[in-house]
């Protein structure tokens, strides 16, 4: 029983981390990134310090 529970814990945590990792890896194309892109200039002029 304890082994099964440990397997379930490992599967849940592994799946959670995997999901976070995969979504984070493709973070640039997530809907949330679109929200940020609305506020930011992704193609700044060549000589400016940065953009918000």
């Amino acid at each position: 029983m304890a082994r099964l529970a440990t397997f379930v814990v490992a599967a849940v945590l592994g799946a959670t981390l995997g999901l976070i990792g995969i979504i984070a890896t493709i973070g640039q194309i997530s809907p949330s990134a679109d929200t940020v892109a609305n506020q930011s200039d992704d193609n700044p002029a060549a000589t400016i310090y940065g953009t918000r």
């Binding site: 976070i20 997530s30 809907p31 940020v36 930011s40 700044p44 940065g50 953009t51």
Partner: peptide, 21 residues
Amino acid sequence: WNAQTVPGSRSSVLAPFATAL
């Protein structure tokens, strides 16, 4: 402050949930 120095993963929709974890 600088959007150009933020890793792409920070804009992930799950990033706040991971921070909450």
